[in-house]
Every structure is written in C-alpha cells, then in structure tokens.
Amino acid sequence: MAFKLKEEALKPERLTGGHRMCAGCGAPVVVRAVLRALKAEDQAVICSATGCLEVSTFMYPYTAWNDSFIHSAFENAGATISGAEAAYKAMKKKGKLPADQTIKFIAFGGDGGTYDIGLQSLSGAMERGHDMVYVCYDNGAYMNTGIQRSSATPRFADTTTSPAGSSVPGKQQQRKDLTAIMAAHHLPYVAQTAPLGSKHGGFKDLHEKAEKAIYTEGACFLNVLAPCPRGWRYDTPKLLEMTDIAVDTCVWPLYEIVDGKLTLSYIPKEKKPVEEYLKAQGRFRHVFKKGNEWMIEEIQKEVDRTWEDLLNRNETK
C-alpha cells in the first residue's frame, strides 16, 4: 500500500500528546510513526525500556499509551516483551483469547537500553525468534540521565562522560554497529531508518519499514535515528534537518536486510561532506577548532569506509 502521509496522519494516535518528552525530540516522533504502521483493528502490547520515553509517557496515574503498555526495567525490554508474546501464544493455544484476535508485540529502547545494558536480553529474545519487533530509538547517548556516552555515541562527540577536554577531545571510540549485530542473528527483517524531511519522502521510509517489521512473522529489528536536542545541541525545530543531513552525509545510511539480503533504501546522488552533519550540532563544536582538522578527516574516513562496505553489499543495484 502506497504511503500517504495525509491519510496516515488521520489515524487516531496510539501515543497521545500531553506526555513530557522535550520539544524537538525524535523519540515520540519515531514511536508515533512506528505505531501508525499497525492496522487499526490490531491490538498491540508495547514495552519500553527505562529511559526518557518511559519516564515521560507513563507517570502514575497518567499514561500517554492507548495500547496496553509495560515497563519493567532498563536492560530487559527484549525479555519482557518476549514473555508477553509467549503468554499470547499460550493463551491462544488454550482458547483464552478469541481466535481472530491479533496482538502485535513491540518494544522500544533507547541506545543505552539497547546497544549497551539491554544487549544480552535483546539478543536472547531475537535468537529465540519471538513474533515481535524491537525498535531502538538511537539518539547516541544516555540522554535521560544527562547525556553520558554509550556505545552508540559517535567518535569525538562531547558527552558528560566523554567530555571534550583539553587532553582528551570527546569520545575516543567508533560507535558499535548494532544493526549488523542484529542482522547476524539471521532475523527475517532488520532495517535502519529515520523520520525524515519531505525531500526524503518524510515518514515514508520509516512507515514502510515499520509495517514490514510488524507484519513479518518472527523477531524483527529496527534501528531508528532519533536526534536529541539536549544531547546533540540543536534548535528544537531542526529535528528533521538533523536526520536529513545524517542521511545525506551517509552518517546514517538507510537500508533493510530481508532474510539476509541487504538493500540500500537511499543512495544520495552526491554524498555530502561530514562537516555538514557535524557543524549542525553543538556536541561536535570542538572538532572545528584550529588544529583539530584531523578529527573531521578521521570521521569522514570512517563514514566512507562503512558506506563503501554497504554499497558493496547492496544486492539491489
């Protein structure tokens, strides 16, 4: 079904407004877009790892969730949702749920709860093949606790635990390639996506990938870039400018892996230099200081390497 934003936007919100997420935050935008891919008649059970999303959307006695929702801890969204999915299977088998009732199981976690502390739980759930989708909203740091570095934080980014100091200029390591790690679980569907500006089709890529992930049987994984205005230091209206430039510089390539076959979803006609991505964010301000040119070169080299690798693996040419 072709994606029509106007029609999609008319669907009742499954994550309502009134929650406490910051203006300009990518996470609720990602969640609403993912949930719009659910068929109206299908029920969903949503799980969130501890993080901004959870503490801001479900503060007792108010919930922003229009579907059943569970949060239990930081590192275990994969395991928690897998239990709910197992319950669904058992209840169906025993006739405790109507035979025509469809419930979809979707977990959300930030990069801290997914790349780092929740990796084991996620890996276990994915390997066991529960019929579920795990969505990582990747903002590249532990934003909820105050912008600490995670294994998703890009090299040289300034965070509160990898500060751009006078002798160590920000985070020293490359980010972990979680999407590849998930693909190595031989999942039926893995994709990397982002909510984008209209020149990139807006929410089309995210919507279509979410739809495939939700309606592909088995354990599926979405890694979604979700900028954070506090951590990245950009003006709140510029959220989609951040994702657009991430895609145009190939810092955040869009692709999907279906049964092991990789397809790039977007190949920019002209790959923009990484400076354009870096200069838009306060967390990289120090790399533009005189004498730090080598940092930008290093970042560019790494982006080029991963992009070349993806181009080589792209099976739909």
Binding site: I70, A79, T80, S82, G83, A86, A87, Y88, M91, S121
Partner: peptide, 23 residues
C-alpha cells in the same frame, strides 16, 4: 510455552512480561 531464556535476569523479566500479559 516454555521460554529457554539466556539468563536468570531474562527469566524473571520474561516471567514478568508473561504474568502481566495474563499468563
């Protein structure tokens, strides 16, 4: 549904998810 989890932390987490789901 027997769920052979990858750790005890996940065992109790999956139990929580399952029991909360109505099982």
């Amino acid at each position: 549904e027997f769920v052979p989890v990858e750790s005890e932390h996940s065992a109790m987490s999956a139990c929580i998810g399952a029991e909360a789901a109505g099982a």
